[in-house]
């Protein structure tokens, strides 16, 4: 974790005051914003929600969730290695995640490899990373402090410096994403044709993994390593269920990400439970609800076909 803010750093939000959720939402929000740590948490949460949402949208489309999961595991050797050589843990996160992205790109990269080959390569990277983290902890010889915040995040400990770092990283990766978004979309859904058109598919794959690595490293500081997917997968997967139009889908991902992050932080402020729990639960609930509704919609459509029945069969249906 980065150096904490010098002001109030309560371990639970409710320790800061004894907040009561009233029915006056405007008052509740203004009360919440009076605390500097809460303001930082909201800013950091918003930055991460936007970044993780957009990068996560491409991750879901490319089916690279396992790579994303492995990159989140990189936080363990990252944090323990940083502690060992006495540098801020955030630097360790970003460095190890980037190294992990390059290793995955080298071992498992390229959509030309088979799925099993890819996942075997990624699994090898993950095991090695966890082993390295374990070694660093042993070398350090002490108990790794902040283990819980490593695993579950510590939104309350986000200092001004950490917010700045997040903002810079997010701005950089979103700038890169804006530049490569169209060819990346092409390479993600249709790599062979994209390659024939001169799109540098392999290079884009590495660039995307690096972007995914920074999104994961940034997200894990808010939600913790174990709950990274609540902001990385949930909003993107939900948006893709709702619409197949890329532009609307991307906008919806950002909106859902922000909603989930704000809802989680707000609820955590007014309760005794951690923010990560609320963020993950909100993300999952929205996804599950959409899934059910999409299933109902598809079922109704199928039923409609059955009623029509006698219409000509669609072309291409095998006899």
């Amino acid at each position: 974790m980065p150096a904490r803010g010098a002001t109030v750093t309560p371990t639970r939000m409710s320790d800061a005051a004894n907040p009561q959720l009233t029915w006056n939402i405007a008052r509740d929000v203004s009360e919440l914003l009076e605390y500097h740590f809460m303001l930082n948490a909201l800013i950091a949460g918003s930055i991460v929600a936007v970044m993780a949402g957009l990068v996560g949208w491409f991750m879901v489309l490319r089916r690279e969730a396992f790579a994303g999961h492995t990159l989140s595991m990189m936080a363990f050797p990252g944090a323990s290695g940083a502690t060992l050589i006495a540098v801020p843990a955030a630097w360790g996160y970003f460095a190890m995640c980037a190294a992990g992205a390059l290793a995955i790109g080298r071992l498992a990269g390229g959509q030309r490899r088979s799925r099993s080959e890819q996942s075997a390569g990624i699994a090898a990277v993950q095991a090695t990373a966890l082993a390295a983290g374990f070694l660093f902890v042993s070398l350090y010889g002490g108990v790794l402090g902040d283990l819980e915040s490593l695993l579950f995040g510590n939104i309350l400990g986000v200092s001004d410096g950490a917010v700045m770092l997040l903002a810079v990283v997010a701005a950089l990766s979103l700038a890169v994403l804006a530049a490569i978004a169209r060819p990346l979309l092409f390479a993600s859904v249709d790599p062979d044709t994209a390659a024939a058109r001169g799109v540098p598919v392999a290079l884009l794959s590495i660039a995307f993994l690096l972007m995914l690595a920074s999104a994961v490293a940034a997200t894990s500081q808010i939600t913790g390593v174990l709950l990274v997917f609540s902001l990385l997968v949930g909003p993107a997967a939900t948006a893709q269920l709702i619409t197949a139009r890329p532009a609307i889908s991307l906008a919806l991902t950002v909106a859902l990400g922000l909603l989930v992050a704000w809802l989680g932080l707000g609820l955590a402020y007014f309760s005794v439970y951690p923010a990560g729990f609320f963020i993950a639960t909100a993300s999952f609930s929205i996804y599950a609800l959409t899934r059910v509704l999409a299933g109902v919609r598809a079922g109704r459509r199928r039923g409609g076909f059955d009623e029509v029945g006698a219409g000509p069969p669609p072309s291409g249906v095998a006899a």
Binding site: A179, A181, R182, P183, L185, F186, R197, V199, P246, A247
Partner: peptide, 11 residues
């Protein structure tokens, strides 16, 4: 994407 998928930028 067949028309402009190889152009840099945002879709």
């Amino acid at each position: 994407l067949g028309l402009d998928g190889d152009r840099w930028g945002v879709p």
